[in-house]
C-alpha cells in the first residue's frame, strides 16, 4: 500500500458516500445515470469474485464489501424506492449501455492475464469500468443545472482512478516486475474520458459559477 493508492481508495469511497448521501438524505437521484450505477455494480460483481477465496487483508475485504454493498443498494434505490425512483428521468438516461458490455466481454476473452473464468471476468471488469462513466457524462450534458452533490460525485469518481495512475507509476519504480498493461491502459482511458468534465468542473469552481457541460 502506498499513499497514492490509499488516497485513491479514500477518494473512491468518498464518491460512493456522496452519492449515498444525496440519495438517502434528499431522496433524489436527479442527474444520476442509473445505467452508470448498473455498470458499476457489474464491475464490482465481476472483479470481486475472489472475495471469499483469496483473503488479502481486512482492509481489502472491507472495501470490497463496501463497494459491492453500496453499488447494488444504489441501483436498488433508484429502481425501486418509491420517492427516489420518481426523480429518475428515464427519458434522459438513454445511453445504450448494453452496447458497452459486449465489446468489453469480447476484449476480455482476447486480452487477459490468464484464460480462466476468474481472470477473464477480472479483465472484463477493468475494461467495463473504463467506459462505465459514459452514460453519466452523456446525462450531465443533457442536465441543465447539475447540483453540487452530483458534480462532486463525478469529480471524485474520476479523481480516484487518476490517483491510481500515480500508484501504478510509484509501484513500477519501487517493485520489480510490477507491470500490468491491462489496468494501466484501461485506467488511462478511464481518466482521459473525464478530461473535459474536469476542465468544466474546475472552470465552474474557479469562476464560482454553476457547473455546465456543453451539449
Amino acid at each position: 500500500m502506498n499513499i497514492f493508492r490509499l488516497a485513491g481508495d479514500m477518494t473512491h469511497l468518498a464518491s460512493v458516500l456522496v452519492l449515498l448521501l444525496k440519495i438517502h438524505t434528499i431522496k433524489s437521484c436527479a442527474g444520476i445515470s442509473l445505467k452508470t450505477q448498473e455498470l458499476y455494480a457489474l464491475v464490482f460483481a465481476t472483479r470481486y469474485l475472489d472475495i471469499f477465496t483469496d483473503f488479502i487483508s481486512l482492509y481489502n475485504t472491507t472495501m470490497k464489501l463496501i463497494f459491492l454493498g453500496s453499488s447494488f443498494s444504489i441501483v436498488w434505490y433508484i429502481r425501486n424506492h418509491k420517492i427516489v425512483s420518481r426523480s429518475y428521468d428515464k427519458s434522459q438516461d438513454t445511453f445504450r449501455h448494453y452496447f458497452l458490455i459486449i465489446p468489453c466481454l469480447l476484449l476480455a476473452l482476447l486480452v487477459n492475464e490468464k484464460f480462466t473464468f476468474k481472470e477473464v471476468m477480472w479483465a472484463f471488469s477493468i475494461y467495463l469500468e473504463a467506459v462505465a462513466i459514459l452514460p453519466q457524462l452523456v446525462l450531465l450534458q443533457r442536465t441543465r443545472n447539475i447540483d453540487n452533490l452530483t458534480g462532486q460525485y463525478v469529480f471524485l469518481l474520476g479523481a480516484y482512478r487518476a490517483l491510481y495512475i500515480l500508484n501504478w507509476i510509484y509501484r513500477y519504480f519501487t517493485e520489480t516486475h510490477y507491470v500490468h498493461w491491462i489496468t494501466w491502459v484501461s485506467g488511462l482511458v478511464q481518466t482521459l474520458l473525464y478530461a473535459d468534465f474536469f476542465y468544466y468542473y474546475f472552470e465552474s469552481w474557479k469562476n464560482n459559477k454553476k457547473l455546465q457541460l456543453p451539449a
Binding site: 481508495d9 483469496d54 488479502i56
Partner: peptide, 10 residues
C-alpha cells in the same frame, strides 16, 4: 505471492 501481488488492488 505472485497471484496476490497482481490482484491486491481494489
Amino acid at each position: 505471492a505472485k497471484k496476490q501481488a497482481s490482484k491486491d488492488e481494489l
